[in-house]
Computed example of a mutant assay.
Amino acid sequence: MRALLVVNPSATTTSARTRDVLVHALASDLKLDVATTEYRGHARDLARRAAESGTTELVVALGGDGTVNEVVNGLLDGGPDPEGLPRLAVVPGGSTNVFARALGLPNDVVEATGALLNALREGSERTVGLGLAAGTPGTEDEGVPPRWFTFCAGFGFDAGVVGRVEQQRERGKRSTHSLYVRQVMRQFLGEPNRRHGTITLERPGEEPLRNLVMSIICNTAPWTYLGNRPVYASPQASFDTALDVLGLTKLTTTTAARHVAQLLTSTPEHGPQGKHAVSLHDLTAFTLHSQVPLPFQMDGDHLGVRTSVTFTGVRRALRVIV
């Protein structure tokens, strides 16, 4: 099997020695080409060329969720075609690795490599559904190109937190859980719309849901991890269905404390709930509009501000080695 290994040299939990061991292990079982990313978006370009080549059967992403997102967008540049596109495999190398862990892969690079080799020898794979976000026709965001996400997107509060974390990392701060906690508090204290939301969710054949302060769109569960603790914003979300949405209509001190507590104690059976929480399951198409520009993120990557985003849940979008 001919494979391409896409390596992010800045992956936070790998070293040059670890990467060399990984390459040697994979090359013993595969006809392996190795490419190291050199700029933002490079992993997408590499995966797109691999998909267009017609000779690459597998693309392995070594890095965090951002690297995986780029590889997925490169593979799906011409649209989903599970039978015709190369398979995807992931070796987690980031600080959180939500997509890989949601697939059931070990969070350790060496263990994950062993699991990948075993899966390849056994021919073990699955087809997963993904989310697609695009600019909304007739709005100022109409020209924003479509982009796939592998596990979540966020519009509003949580995207603002992601943006703050990215700013801190650009200043040399390490991505730690304490860093995220600090930025959550700063975003909360500076959030001007936490009492009266500006977001409206529209879906075909249903009444609009108005006055949302934030919206979390999940492609699978868990939504994220705090160390080894999984956090479930939408417990029913699954790679086998379309998209789930958690929306909050108020973020006062009391309601925010309640929802944070619910998230920290969430399980595969129970997530946030209450009169200010809106949960929707298995949506194939919907649009989020905001009266004011709000921050937007996908797979933990801050993408600036938007006033409108249209989402599509695509079942059976890509084959993944697991």
Rank of each mutant, 00 (worst) to 15 (best):
P80N: 06
D33F: 00
L85H: 02
H281N: 15
L251V: 08
S175K: 15
A16E: 15
E140K: 14
N228I: 11
L105H: 08
R195S: 12
E191C: 13
V71M: 11
E70M: 06
Q183E: 14
L189W: 01
F149L: 04
E269V: 12
L294D: 03
L246A: 02
E206T: 08
E125F: 12
A277N: 02
L32P: 01
A256Y: 08
H259K: 05
T96Y: 13
R171Y: 08
R126L: 15
R306I: 12
L132D: 05
A50E: 02
R126P: 05
Q273G: 08
C152S: 07
S124W: 13
R44A: 12
P92L: 09
V144F: 05
H196G: 08
V59D: 04
G41H: 11
V98S: 03
Q187C: 09
F149I: 04
G41W: 10
V322G: 10
Y225H: 14
T241G: 14
H42N: 13
Q291L: 13
P82F: 15
L5G: 01
E202I: 10
L22Y: 02
E269A: 12
R306E: 07
T249P: 09
L243T: 04
W148L: 07
Y39P: 00
V314E: 08
A257G: 09
T312R: 10
G163P: 00
E122P: 00
A242W: 07
G64A: 14
M1H: 02
R40P: 07
N211P: 02
P235R: 10
A277C: 14
Q262T: 07
T241P: 07
S178C: 01
V231T: 10
D299C: 06
G129F: 13
G131H: 00
N107G: 15
T13I: 13
R121T: 09
V309K: 01
G172Y: 14
V305I: 04
R194D: 14
R229Q: 14
T12E: 15
T56K: 04
V314D: 05
P293Q: 02
L4H: 04
V161C: 04
G41Q: 13
G271R: 01
R316Q: 15
L130V: 03
L251K: 01
E57A: 06
L248Y: 10
L116N: 07
M185K: 02
S308N: 13
T252V: 12
G63S: 13
F157T: 08
L88N: 06
E122F: 01
A51L: 03
V109T: 13
E202H: 09
V110L: 00
L5W: 03
A233G: 08
V110C: 00
G79K: 05
V322P: 03
L85I: 12
E38V: 15
A134F: 03
G93Q: 09
R195I: 06
G74A: 05
L226M: 09
L105T: 03
P235Q: 14
G78E: 10
A242D: 13
V322C: 11
L283C: 08
V60M: 10
T255K: 09
S10E: 11
T198F: 08
G313S: 13
T220A: 12
V110M: 00
K173H: 15
